[in-house]
Nucleic acid binder design. Structure first.
Lengths: 244, 244
DNA sequence: CGTCAGTTTGACCTAGTTCAAGGCCAGTGG
DNA sequence: CCACTGGCCTTGAACTAGGTCAAACTGACG
């Protein structure tokens, strides 16, 4: 499949989880002018302070939105997976308040703000779908606040894994209970606010309790029920089953 | 000033920080049908799982959006101050993923989703302003993730105080460097993910370092520069100086 | 004057950090 | 084909920020 075809499929899937599009709306989306670029693992896509003029649609790989604190500590404040629009906010907010970097190598499509705005003006239902998408992103951020603020390490790590599994499943990237998990333990520490050492011990505990298996970038959630129970996971904040 | 007049003033101020409204747009907002209600401190406005049919506009007092974890711990994931629309997401997301409760007594205006949607359809610039508002809310959540994940208690508490001071100033609720601060130390603990005991010790430290003064609900930021330095505060994520 | 909610302080405890050292692989170059 | 290197993972030991428990203190309010 070509990159353009893939991107079309991905963006349509995203919006059509919210509602069926008309043929006209579908065409409007498919005729958006895309610039497709490949990025390497670790490469930055945009930096804090940038004034973006294009939106980012992630086709393949994982992206981190992260912030750095004067002490040098880095915190990943959101993870984007294929199909996500990790910089939709750039459309209406004039500068980046965080960095955007690849967690893996990947493929990204850029769409100029102008063409998106034109499309939104003409097709209000698409605007509504994207607005909704940014609201879900906000809901995820709030759950992350909860996660790092009150859950102990074991539950916290388990919660992140549950969320990623469910989100990846929604875009067809989970087979059975297996999915690619490209984060290093240090990166998982930057997600959870834990040290890499403690992430390691926590993963070891999850493994020896028979909840997960993780080797060479391949994750299996062996017992999803126990994972949900251990982490207090409730997927309703992801709004996946919520066609409007 | 009547509640209706107050609500008009507040909502217009909010939107007009983004751009000047036309007389027609202004009228559309002023003629929204409002139901105004008073709430007591501690009263809940909406609960997790509710399917809201109205939006909430906060006229007076503070609102917390909070989540509860099975262990019983409560986390405040966002604070709304006068002029905020703490449940704008209800417009497009079908259920509440968190609770909404008063941190103080206050006055709230409810607006039916239907009338808002009608207005947004007719006045796209208003839609854009509200969308933008929900994007800023997302940016604040991400900063909170950073705050609770990586900052130590002293910086973390100071950061919350800086943010609230700036946001309150933007709606005219800071005089000099003084503002009403109605949170108990336990509630501040629920914001920062710290125990009430440690919040107390941290506030004592901030006081004795001459950064703040806080007595009987009245906060003074004595040295804002030092507060910013201590907490690594950078207001750009609030997008207050960012007319589109 | 008693009560109740919130604040302050002390003493002890623990989850998670930090530092340090090995181990394991995959890729590279001789 | 093997040795070397560099990320990443794993483990141990010592340390600390912040939690928990408990008690005293303050002020507002009926």
């Amino acid at each position: 499949m070509s990159d353009a075809a893939r991107s079309a499929k991905i963006i349509l899937r995203k919006i059509e989880t919210v509602f069926r599009l008309s043929e006209e709306e579908r065409q409007a989306i498919l005729s958006l002018p895309l610039t497709i670029r490949r990025f390497d693992r670790g490469q930055d896509i945009a930096r804090q302070g940038d004034k973006p003029s294009q939106c980012v649609l992630l086709l393949e790989g994982w992206i981190a939105r992260y912030k750095v604190v004067p002490s040098g500590k880095r915190q990943i404040v959101a993870i984007a997976i294929p199909g996500d629009l990790p910089d939709l906010q750039g459309l209406y907010l004039p500068w980046m308040d965080h960095d955007l970097g690849m967690l893996t190598k990947g493929i990204v499509a850029f769409v100029p703000h102008g063409t998106i705005e034109a499309m939104l003006g003409q097709y209000p239902r698409i605007a509504k779908a994207l607005w909704r998408d940014s609201l879900v992103e906000g809901a995820i951020s709030r759950e992350w606040v909860l996660n790092v603020a009150v859950r102990e390490a074991y539950a916290r790590v388990a919660h992140v894994l549950c969320e990623l599994c469910i989100r990846l499943r929604a875009v067809g990237l989970v087979h059975g209970n297996d999915f690619d998990f490209p984060l290093t333990q240090s990166q998982l520490g930057e997600v959870t606010g834990l040290s890499n050492v403690h992430v390691n011990r926590t993963l070891m505990a999850l493994r020896s309790d028979g909840l997960i298996s993780l080797e060479r970038g391949s994750m299996t959630i062996i017992d999803f029920d126990k994972m949900m129970e251990a982490s207090g996971f409730d997927e309703s904040y992801l709004y996946l089953a919520a066609a409007a």
